[in-house]
Design a protein around this nucleic acid. Structure first.
Length: 275
DNA sequence: AAATCAGACAACCGCGTTAGT
DNA sequence: CACTAACGCGGTTGTCTGATT
């Protein structure tokens, strides 16, 4: 046992709040995390004066209050990255989130289920009238199968890629040559070998693509220019034999099963040519 | 203007894993 | 080694909000 239950747990049994967080609760948690943010989550919940279980506090912090969160709409680049990562990793949202700076697994999961899945399904239906799509994940499964078989996702997705690349310029602002790169530069090989990403990238970047002032990342136009400015920090979190998630924690549980696949699939990704 | 619907997002729940005793 | 609290993840549900009728 990590820590014996103490008298506090008798108190907490009175009643724990559930449901949406109030601004006051947010403030309490924020204040506590910024000053004494240590210990187990149940400790934090108690000491911050919250009538919440530790689990709820953890979730609130990770998904909403964390200062390094990048909030707002997903950039087209992020969308493409999610699609590709999902094609490789499946519903391993935490692993996908670990490669998208400032995004949470919950956010990505919601985005996938509410937006991308439908869009991909439509695209796939449009592109392959011969195949039937009976279950809700068939679009991503088709993509995954395709990637696993050595292909790229682009034959399936090229229609909306064209659209999104067009949209990139207006959505992300800045000059199109630097902030709206084609995929070939977005996924340049250097991204696969450089440093793991900085957990607080907003401290060193000023990105026109940023929407809300949270964590940021940028895409440069040229091969050899990496992400995260001068650092070439790796949004894919690949470095040596160590990988960390967005909280800076080491990943566990067979995640390396996917890293090889990740690396081997990205060169295929680069085969794509814009029309 | 009110009712309904759909999409997006926030939060909870259950389960597997980790780690301390 | 067994037990158990804490943690982390993915699936699911609940709530809110804007669009449509």
């Amino acid at each position: 046992m990590r820590k014996p239950e103490d008298k506090f747990n008798n108190d907490k049994k009175l009643k724990l709040r559930k449901g949406l967080w109030s601004p006051e609760e947010d403030e309490k948690l924020m204040k506590y995390m910024s000053s004494d943010g240590q210990g187990s989550w149940s400790d934090i919940a108690r000491h911050a004066g919250l009538q919440r279980c530790g689990k709820s506090c953890r979730l609130r912090w990770i998904n909403y209050l964390r200062p390094d969160l990048r909030r707002g709409a997903f950039c087209p680049q992020e969308e493409h990255l999610i699609i590709h990562l999902h094609s490789i990793l499946g519903n391993r949202w935490s692993q996908i989130a670990a490669r998208l700076p400032g995004r949470t697994d919950n956010e990505i999961k919601n985005f996938w289920n509410s937006t991308l899945k439908k869009r991909l399904k439509n695209t796939t239906v449009t592109n392959s009238t011969s195949s039937s799509l009976n279950n809700s994940d068939s679009a991503s499964e088709q993509i995954r199968d395709h990637v696993a078989g050595g292909g790229t996702i682009f034959p399936v997705l090229h229609e909306h890629v064209d659209i999104d690349i067009m949209a990139t310029t207006s959505l992300c602002g800045g000059d199109a040559s630097s902030s709206s790169p084609p995929f070939t530069s977005m996924l340049c090989p250097s991204m696969l070998t450089v440093n793991r990403f900085d957990p607080f990238p907003h401290q060193q970047l000023n990105d026109p693509c940023d929407i809300s002032g949270g964590a940021q990342f940028r895409f440069h136009g040229g091969i050899g220019e990496g992400l995260y400015g001068e650092n070439h920090s790796d949004m894919f979190g690949l470095e040596d034999n160590n990988i960390r998630n967005w909280n800076g924690e080491s990943l566990r549980m067979g995640e390396w099963d996917f890293e090889g696949l990740m690396e081997s699939s990205f060169p295929n990704f680069l085969d794509f040519q814009f029309q």
